Simulated scan of single mutants.
Amino acid sequence: MSQPSQQTASLPQLAADAQAEQILAAGIAAATGPVTLACSFSVEDVVLIDILHKVAREVRVFALDTGRLNEETYEVAEALLERYALSIDWYFPERQAVEQLEREKGLFSFRASLDNRHECCRIRKVEPLRRALSGKGGWITGLRRAQSVTRTELASIEVDQANGGLLKINPLLNWSDEQVWDYAKEHRLPVNRLHRQGYPSIGCAPCTRPVREGEHPRAGRWWWENPEHKECGLHR
């Protein structure tokens, strides 16, 4: 993947209580090339689209269609297109790779082992992400520390070594669940109906289930795996 490198660039210095708008502005200014928002149509991503619409409309939005998304997720995408006149750059898995995987291992190989699950995520998510980030100087995510034990060490702006050294900008990193939902309600944002049906985290349909009361928000993602394994490879 050919893209500008940020590996030797100095990262912006931000106050511990920097606002999302300040993080976005600093990250976009520091990036050595175009910046794009990765959108899975979660409530966090919808919040970010609303903020970007106010402060940085030039930032483009991309989404990964794994071929196994919920209908409710596509409904959010359509609502955002209508509300913000967005142009979403959709990326799909390579057809031959998906065909070979399903032909050789069936439709649910990802539940057989962690290696198999990583293989499915690599084909459906990681490889399309690499194409989406090609030539970019930075990307924006809706990652928050409160979401998972795998995300506690993230920074608001960091160098993404796994994707060639571009900047990774996480404006909502320190937001709580309450802050995210208060913003969404205040601004009457379109949110995925599954959130209100017990899905705090939404991915591919076969890999996501509602959580029970008292469970961690990420408990419904790959529920057959240990918490420390619950990433798909997009955020290594």
Rank of each mutant, 00 (worst) to 15 (best):
N70S: 10
P128C: 08
C120I: 03
I140T: 13
T150L: 11
A219N: 02
A25H: 11
E44M: 04
S201E: 05
A205M: 02
L129H: 01
E231K: 03
G165L: 11
S42D: 04
K185S: 13
E186F: 03
P128I: 08
H235T: 02
L11S: 03
I49P: 10
I23M: 00
R188V: 11
G135Y: 05
G142R: 02
G203C: 02
I123V: 09
V55A: 06
H229P: 00
D65F: 06
A112N: 09
R124I: 02
Q161N: 14
L114Y: 12
E228I: 01
R130T: 04
R103K: 15
C232T: 02
Q96K: 13
Q100V: 12
E225F: 00
W222M: 01
D177I: 09
S156C: 10
L64R: 00
Y183P: 02
R95N: 08
M1S: 12
A26G: 10
L154I: 06
G67W: 06
S148D: 07
I28P: 13
E213I: 09
G106N: 06
L80W: 05
M1P: 03
H229D: 15
V43K: 06
Q161C: 07
R144A: 12
G220R: 08
G233V: 01
E127A: 15
R209Q: 14
G138W: 09
R144D: 13
C39L: 01
L52Y: 08
D65I: 09
L133Q: 04
F108W: 05
E127G: 00
A184H: 04
L24G: 00
E94Y: 07
K125F: 07
H235Y: 05
E21R: 09
R212W: 04
F108Q: 10
R103I: 02
L101E: 13
V43R: 14
S134L: 05
A16Q: 14
R221W: 03
I123L: 11
R236C: 06
V47P: 14
R151Y: 08
E102S: 04
F92W: 08
Q3G: 08
A20C: 08
D17E: 15
D65H: 15
R124T: 10
G203H: 00
N226K: 12
P206V: 13
A18V: 12
N192Q: 14
Q100D: 15
P217Q: 10
S42V: 02
Q13W: 07
